[in-house]
């Protein structure tokens, strides 16, 4: 379970970092940097509980990764990235509000929930603005909602008890943003990774793997 969350955080952090130099405003490059750094920090704290962070990040093959589908999808447009962040942050906030049953995780949750709360507010602000902005932004935002909604069950699969809370919270935000909340939900549990993860890992791991045993 720790590895599921660590992998989720690392992959999403990686996706956030891809927005730098590509964001709609320079202020948003900075915001993506901030979120990416927070998530990377979370991943590192979690990996540290179970082993060597670089071993996990750079030496595992695609099939060994335990992240969910939602985080490995490409960034798409800004609407998709904000919807993805909204869902993920909502999940993290719900998860970090539960008691993990051990002190080391409790400490990580306590710190991470502040970050996740901030990410949630950031994503919520944008989902509102894009949902209730122009016709163009509304259409893009709705498309993002429709893509993300079915993937929430899998996102919550390590802590299925929070799925209800997450969906309720998201539904309220989407409604406020004048968006339609989808009625269909998929009940997919963990499944095969999409081809996107292999591409991502290939780029991320290539240099480290090329120099076996090297320190950086």
């Amino acid at each position: 379970m720790i590895l599921d969350l660590a992998d989720d955080a690392l992959i999403l952090s990686h996706r956030c970092s891809e927005w730098l130099t590509r964001a709609p405003e320079i202020e948003l490059d900075i915001a993506f940097g901030n979120i990416g750094l927070d998530l990377l920090g979370q991943a590192r704290s979690l990996y540290a509980l179970v082993g060597d962070e670089d071993q996990f990040a750079y030496q595992r093959d695609t099939h060994e990764w335990r992240n969910c589908t939602l985080v490995e999808l490409p960034n798409g447009d800004f609407a998709f990235s904000m919807m993805r962040l909204l869902a993920f942050a909502s999940y993290e906030c719900a998860l970090f509000s539960t008691d993990p049953g051990r002190d080391d995780l409790r400490a990580i949750y306590a710190k991470a929930i502040k970050e996740a709360t901030y990410h949630l507010e950031h994503a919520e602000a944008w989902v509102l603005r894009l949902g209730d902005g122009t016709d163009v932004s509304h259409a893009r935002m709705q498309a993002a909602v429709d893509t993300v909604w079915p993937l929430i069950t899998e996102l919550c699969s390590s802590a299925p008890e929070v799925e209800g809370v997450v969906r309720t919270q998201l539904a309220a935000i989407l409604t406020a943003a004048t968006l339609t909340v989808p009625t269909t939900t998929a009940s997919t549990r963990r499944r095969e990774h999409t081809p996107h993860l292999a591409h991502l890992l290939n780029e991320m791991q290539a240099l480290a793997r090329e120099h076996e045993g090297a320190t950086w």
Partner: peptide
């Protein structure tokens, strides 16, 4: 200074830009 569409966004941006 910075650019933002409204006060709430401006506050959020300011936190990221000026208090990192």
């Amino acid at each position: 200074s910075l650019h933002a569409s409204d006060a709430e966004s401006a506050l959020r941006n300011a936190r990221d830009v000026y208090t990192r």
